[in-house]
Structures are given as C-alpha cells and as structure tokens.
C-alpha cells in the first residue's frame, strides 16, 4: 500500500493527501509551513524520544566512569558522554523549532516522565559491560538514527543526524575493539565478556519493540519519517551483531539458518527482564506485558533523572 493510499485510510483530507503525494514522490519537506498537524505531531514525538533518549545515555554512561581501568578508558567514556549530550543538543535544537523548550524538557519535567530504554537505567558493574554494550547497543541505536538520516522526508532532520551517525559508528567500533581485546586478554576477562553478552545481547534484539505484524502501519512510516520497519532494523542489527561476534569468536544466542539465509535469535521473544537480578527470565512473554515492564524501567529511575536535574554528579568524577 502506498502512502497516498494509506492517507485515504487516515482520512480524506486534502492537505494530508497533498502532503503524502509529495512525500511519496520523493520530495523532501524543508519548510515547516508545509506540514500538516499530523505530520508535525509524528515528528514532534520522534524528536521528543530521540532528544530525551540521548540524554539518558549520559546518565547511564556516567555509571561506567568509576569502573574505568585507566585514564584512556575514562577519556573514552567522557568522550561518549560528550557526544551523546551533543546528539541530544542537536536534536533538541531541531525540536525547539517545533515550539518546545529543551531546557524545560530536560530540567523542569517530572523525572518519571523521561523517555528511555530500561537498559539505560541499570548501572554498569564493570568496564567490560560498558564496551560490550557499546559494541551491541550503540550498533542497535545507530540503525534507528541511520534510517532517519537516509530516508526521513523532513530534510533538516536528515542533516541533523549526519554527524550524530558517524559518532555513533565510532561508539560501536570503540566497543567492538575493546570487546575483542578483552576476549583475548585472559580467561577471566573472556568470561566477563560472556557474562555481559548474556544480558546485553537480548536487549539489542528487543531494542526495536513490537514485531511488524503487531505494530500496524505507524505514522512514522506513512509520512516517511523512517523507512525501515521494526523487523527490518532488527534483522539488520542481528546480522551485523552476529557477524561481529563470529569474527572475534564470541558466542551469542543466535544462529544462521541455511534454509532462510537469515540469522535467527535463539531465545524466547519477547521475554521479560528481572530488574532485581539483572537477568532475563528465559520464557516467552507477550508484548503488552513487555511494554508495561518497559515503562516501569530500571532501578535507577527516577533517581538518576532527579540527579541530572540537580546537576549533581558526585565527587568520584574528580578522583583518580
């Protein structure tokens, strides 16, 4: 079904149809005056999630800082935090063109209203967890921002993400380089990589949410804000993550199916994450339950956002 046909289902409004015909023909929207309320709303929602989501990488990565084994690692974590704040700022500036105040949305909203992925609300226990998370989860995040850069019908959003995306590539490559290093450093560090993979890898697979057949046709796709569906991104991520794991001899819960020529996730999907024990409950759940748990978030919510709003980081940042 084309987007124009989809518009007829949305409602037979002339402005909606005209806009969708322009988007369908490949035209990029530059001027906000050309937006319909519905198109504007889907961009506002996308930017809200993106800008707040980037901020919550900061509060998560900050927990890795005290686990850094040396100064180089501290610089790398600080660099990642700086990049993510930059990404929040860049998308926040675009969000402000829609009439939102990024300062208020960051420092004055209810801390419980922050949008984040629950995994960003579990503190990092050791530096190996941080680099494994970079290798797999920054890779996952990049497919979402890469899709928008390549395909978004709103041209300013494409441009906003150019620099964001090559920095995200740096983060997952940094994680990959150090994951490989720790895989080969000693038996102990190899074991720690395997332990980290057990709980981090499934988060990558769950990253994109409901499968397409349960998702319907969201406005993000109708209006060309993104082109890749949840399943498309999940497939791309799984392939890339598995090829990386294969290259460094790391075992992950997935295999290549010769018949379908696709990588297949070997664990129940979806499954729930036990927030108290920081491990997956390895039995199949349902998506409504998964999303409800998702909204509850991790153990650092909301305290970590309250601290962010107080700009209170702790003395350990200044200790060697």
């Amino acid at each position: 079904m084309s987007n124009t046909q989809q518009a007829i289902q949305i409602g037979d409004k002339t402005a909606e149809k005209a806009l969708l015909e322009r988007i369908d023909s490949g035209e990029l929207i530059e001027d906000m005056a050309d937006m319909t309320p519905r198109y504007r709303a889907v961009l506002e929602r996308t930017l809200a999630i993106a800008a707040q989501g980037e901020v919550t990488v900061l509060t998560w990565a900050q927990t890795a800082f005290r686990t850094c084994p040396d100064l180089g690692a501290k610089i790398a974590v600080a660099g990642s935090i700086q990049d993510e704040v930059g990404h929040a700022h860049q998308q926040g500036m675009l969000w402000e063109r829609f009439g939102f105040d990024m300062q208020k949305q960051t420092f004055e909203v209810d801390p419980n209203s922050y949008w984040s992925l629950p995994i960003m609300e579990f503190p990092i226990s050791n530096y190996i967890e941080f680099v494994v998370a970079q290798a797999f989860l920054d890779r996952a995040g990049r497919y979402t921002t890469w899709d928008i850069e390549k395909h978004c019908s709103f041209a300013p959003y494409r441009r906003t993400l150019r620099k964001v995306n090559f920095e995200e590539a740096f983060h997952f490559r940094h994680g990959a380089m150090w994951t490989e290093y720790f895989m080969n450093f000693s038996e102990e560090t190899k074991q720690m990589v395997n332990e980290a993979v057990k709980w981090i890898f499934p988060w990558g697979y769950h990253w994109y949410g409901r499968p397409d057949h349960l998702k319907g046709h969201p406005d993000q796709l109708t209006y060309g804000v993104r082109k890749w569906t949840n399943d498309t991104m999940r497939r791309k991520w799984l392939k890339s993550a598995c090829l990386f794991a294969q290259r460094i001899g790391l075992e992950v819960p997935a295999h290549f199916d010769d018949e379908t020529q696709e990588w297949v996730f070997d664990e129940p999907f979806p499954m729930l994450f036990d927030r108290d024990n920081k491990e997956w409950i390895r039995e199949e759940s349902d998506w409504d339950t998964f999303i409800n748990e998702f909204k509850v978030g991790g153990p650092m919510r909301p305290a970590v956002y309250e601290r962010l709003q107080r700009e209170e980081w702790g003395n350990f940042l200044w200790q060697s």
Partner: peptide, 11 residues
C-alpha cells in the same frame, strides 16, 4: 590532547 578515539585511530 584528550581524544577519546585515540586508541581506535592508532589501531
């Protein structure tokens, strides 16, 4: 001087 990508670039 504090390039976070220093190790990656050298590698």
């Amino acid at each position: 001087i504090g390039c976070p990508a220093m190790d990656l670039i050298k590698d």
